[in-house]
Design a protein around this nucleic acid. Structure first.
Length: 474
DNA sequence: TTTTGAGTTGTTCGA
DNA sequence: GTCGAACAACTCAAA
């Protein structure tokens, strides 16, 4: 079935040539498929840092993808421009019959795709979008009355009841490799510098591209059976570290879900649950785009958060005086990644202890996280802030010290990112201000001089947070 | 339509 | 130190 003479496949956050739904559909429906990627100036020009790990990761992944496509006899046309104009222009120049891509659920991406579809439509071309970044998305998992779920557990039950081998089957892209359009004369890949960026010190920090994803996944599969017991400990290699690859599509979500379903362990089941969360938040954002800018439950927009700039700055810079929070925030700045347990601890601390608007924290994470995904980041923040769908109850407030004792008992993680505390005894590393002054001197960490005193008192701030919520509910 | 059961990841208090 | 209850009702999803 080849309906089209030639088409264009537009790569976005699906940087792989294996098990790619949109690419498969393009190839199956065309005699010849051109491939393109746009380094979008609309996004890149607004980035504050020139040495951006995310751009470096993206660039390396695009380079690898281009190499793979060329090895298969095809090519990847790499454009530095504005996608809204560049894609319709490229489609016109190539004279293709249609454009294919994979669907994106973020409001800005949806607006971009609508603009591109409209521009293509004016020339009589269609934009075909395929589901690729989720196992189930949008309207596939619904309640019995046909409405989208807003509570996770029943959503997950329905998800698990519906999923079968069909939904996690790989799209055999290689079957049609001969339909890839051959390299264009003079085709090249702009360097990072040509895009206006410079390589960050230490590179992107994570092995990029499909090869990087494959290596991480192979390593994780061996640890998957123990995932349930190890995933909450930031000093332990327990999680998959695949989030950035899920962000850029350098590995297929179907592949991950298939392995999670195949694993018989409790670890596999727990990890599958995390993949279901990813789908859950995609569909939440799709159906409730207002949550991208405000509380899912609009009544909580009425809370006037009293926390000020100085507290926000201390949180960002990892100098709140609460070791686990500071270590987490410094990990984010140093590596562009933060362990999920710590994302909750740090988010809860900003909102419930520093009483700062959760959107400030969401923004900071969005700017820093290599794996930043609007749906997951926003959903996670709203869960912690108790403003979201199916949120943590507002009176359930993390204690930064007991979380530290539970999930980093020896302070191994803390000491890695807060070297000031390297010699503080285990029993005091979670709350160094409780160490008697003489002993602080002895271990070279005087609180207030070598490491900050706590900028707030947890018990008092907890009461204030409870009062803020109570006032809105009354 | 009404009723019923249930809800990611916690903390604190008092026995 | 360990345990259970309270936190506070509320809304969702299903029967």
């Amino acid at each position: 079935m080849t309906a089209y003479e030639s088409t264009l496949f537009w790569f976005r956050r699906d940087l792989r040539d294996e098990d790619n739904a949109g690419l498969y559909h393009a190839l199956a429906a065309s005699r010849r498929v051109h491939c393109a990627f746009v380094f979008d100036r609309g996004i890149l020009d607004g980035l504050p840092e020139r040495a951006d790990r995310r751009v470096a990761f993206l660039h390396a992944s695009v380079a690898e993808l281009r190499g793979r496509l060329r090895e298969a006899g095809g090519d990847l046309r790499v454009v530095h421009g504005h996608a809204r104009e560049a894609i319709p222009a490229l489609a016109a120049r190539l004279g293709v019959d249609a454009v294919f891509a994979n669907e994106d659920y973020e409001p800005a991406a949806r607006a971009r795709d609508e603009a591109v579809a409209a521009a293509l439509g004016r020339d009589g071309r269609r934009l075909h979008l395929a589901k690729d970044q989720a196992v189930f998305a949008k309207d596939e998992i619904l309640t019995r009355s046909g409405t989208p779920f807003t509570v996770f557990t029943p959503y997950k039950r329905a998800w698990l009841a519906k999923v079968d081998d069909f939904y996690v089957k790989a799209y055999p892209v290689g079957r049609y490799a001969s339909r890839l359009a051959p390299p264009a004369p003079g085709s090249s890949l702009p360097s990072l510098e040509a895009l206006g960026f410079e390589p960050p010190a230490g590179g992107p920090g994570v092995a990029a591209g499909m090869s990087g994803a494959q290596a991480l996944f192979a390593d994780f599969l061996a640890r998957l059976p123990r995932y349930a017991e190890t995933r909450d400990f930031p000093a332990v290699k327990g999680v998959s570290y695949l989030s950035v690859h899920n962000r850029f599509g350098t590995i297929s979500i179907r592949r991950l879900a298939a392995e999670a379903r195949a694993g018989a362990s409790e670890g596999a089941a727990t990890w599958l649950s995390e993949l279901v969360w990813r789908d859950f938040y995609f569909q939440i954002l799709w159906h409730h785009p207002h949550a991208a800018t405000g509380s899912f439950r609009r009544e909580y927009d009425a809370i006037a958060w009293p926390g000020g700039e100085d507290r926000l700055a201390a949180w960002r810079e990892g100098r709140t005086g609460y070791p686990l929070v500071d270590a987490a925030m410094r990990q984010l700045t140093a590596t562009g990644w933060m362990h999920n347990r710590l994302r909750m601890v740090a988010a809860s601390f900003l909102v419930k202890d520093l009483l700062v608007d959760w959107r400030q924290g969401e923004r900071w994470f969005a700017d820093r996280l290599l794996d930043f995904d609007l749906a997951a980041n926003n959903g996670g923040w709203q869960w912690c802030a108790s403003t979201g769908c199916d949120a943590q109850p507002w009176f359930r407030i993390f204690n930064p010290v007991s979380q530290s004792q539970r999930f980093d008992p020896q302070g191994r993680f803390i000491r890695r990112y807060v070297p000031e505390l390297a010699r503080v005894p285990e029993a005091f590393v979670h709350a160094p201000w409780t160490l008697p002054p003489l002993e602080q001197q002895a271990c070279g960490c005087v609180v207030g001089r070598d490491y900050p005193a706590p900028i707030v008192e947890h018990a008092a701030q907890r009461e204030r947070a409870l009062a803020l919520f109570k006032a809105v509910r009354a």
